[in-house]
Amino acid sequence: MQESKAEALAKLRKDLKEMLVKDLSLEDVNPEDIKDDEILFGEGLGLDSLDAVEIVVLLQRNFGLEIKDMNKGKEVFYSIDTLANYVYENTKSET
């Protein structure tokens, strides 16, 4: 059971990296260049608030997820790891 969670999270991280690079048209960045724990906004990957809009849409479109709470957003948008965990925790009942 634990292993399948690890596998699911690994797949989610990979998918999310690909989605970010594609949807945000990140130039000169390959999905595999993004570290799992790299900070997404500001220093780190260097995304800005308007990229956040795209991530909000990306979560809605691909996973049917909406972040209602600002504090939750801060936690979720921290890195690929936190994003993947959030998606996993909120969609696992569907899979």
Binding site: F41, S49, L50, A52, V53, V56, V57, Q60, E66, I67, K68, M70, G73, K74, F77
Partner: peptide, 15 residues
């Protein structure tokens, strides 16, 4: 000036 320029709140409001 809130987190990410308030975009999460803006998107929620529009939605």
């Amino acid at each position: 000036e809130s987190y990410l320029g308030g975009v999460v709140e803006i998107m929620n409001a529009i939605n």
